[in-house]
């Protein structure tokens, strides 16, 4: 059983890591903690369901459509909402509350448009489970692992090797200085949210087949995703993944050997302790200390 638990933990961890990636990207590139990320995931799952399940388009097409739409949505949110608030001088806590309000609005919108009943996201693969060392897993879950790894790599390369990516980081560090260097801050900020939304879109498309499309899809998982990105070091791309795997393993092992209802409790306790003792996370990310 230990082997299966470890494998399950790794897979769950990669799911958390992929979600945490979205949080880290926005934080790294704009310093904002986005509480609406979970709802973006749910929204993507609903969109994917509409294209793949209702319209019957092939999965690849549905994926591309969802990603594009979410990208545009992300940019629109940034341009139409976030930047307007930032112009008014809304920062810090208030910005957090804006993202909270946004998450409520998106959730409410989904309830109105799609209804609150769960929706069927058809399987992507023909095989319903794959047996890996005793752990029976849906192939979609394994795909999640690969997708998480690939996304992580791609995002990291994008942020560190491409001009746009480096520009994004520069804007986060000091937008005036970045502007002085000729970086288009406005465009860059929009891209940040667009990127995070793309990550959310991929999460949603993956999670839909695994859990079914429900209103609480994002909310349930995003808490752990958030925790992963913090555990690894907020803003650190690889950290989100590592943090996710650690949390996934802890949850899985605690569930298997201690008590299945204690999983979340222990995971949150560990998250709290990490923040209390080593808030910079595993990878010693960004200055976090206040006097």
């Amino acid at each position: 059983m230990l082997k299966s638990l470890i494998i399950v933990g790794l897979i769950m961890g990669s799911i958390y890591g992929l979600i945490g990636l979205g949080y880290s990207v926005i934080y790294r590139a704009s310093g904002i903690m986005n509480l609406a990320q979970g709802e973006l995931i749910t929204l993507s799952a609903f969109l994917g369901y509409t294209f793949f399940g209702v319209c019957g388009l092939p999965y690849g097409v549905a994926l591309i459509l969802t990603v594009v739409i979410m990208f545009v949505l992300g940019v629109m949110i940034q341009k139409g909402l976030v930047s307007r608030y930032q112009k008014r001088g809304v920062t810090g806590v208030y910005m957090l509350l804006i993202t909270f309000g946004l998450s409520r609005v998106i959730n409410g919108g989904e309830a109105l448009i799609f209804g609150s009943n769960a929706k069927r996201f058809p399987s992507i693969f023909n095989v319903s489970t794959v047996n890996i060392m005793g752990a029976h897993l849906q192939p979609e879950r394994i795909m999640c692992l690969f997708l998480a790894l690939i996304s992580m790599l791609l995002v990291h390369l994008f942020m560190t090797r491409t001009k746009t990516g480096i520009g994004m980081q520069a804007c986060a560090m000091h937008s005036k200085a970045a502007e002085a260097c000729g970086i288009d801050v406005v465009k860059s900020n929009g891209l940040t949210w667009g990127l995070a939304s793309v990550v959310a879109a991929m999460c949603g498309m993956m999670l839909g087949p695994i859990y079914g499309v429900t209103l609480m899809l994002g909310a349930n998982l995003s808490q752990m995703g958030f925790a992963s990105s913090v555990a690894g070091g907020m803003g650190n791309i690889y950290g989100a993944m590592v943090g996710g795997i650690i949390i996934g393993l802890i949850e899985s092992l605690v569930g298997g050997y201690v008590n299945s209802t204690w999983k979340s409790m222990i995971a949150y306790l560990i998250l709290f302790l990490i923040l209390a003792v080593r808030p910079t996370g595993l990878f010693n990310e960004q200055a976090v200390r206040d006097v």
Binding site: M1, S4, L5, V8, M12, I15, G134, A135, H136, Y211, M216, N220, L221, M224, E251, S252, G255, G256, S260, T261, K263
Partner: peptide
Amino acid sequence: VETGSESDTDYSAQCLKIVD
């Protein structure tokens, strides 16, 4: 006898024990 919550994401531990 296993237990869990509706909002849990993963029931692997419980399923393994039950199937066993």
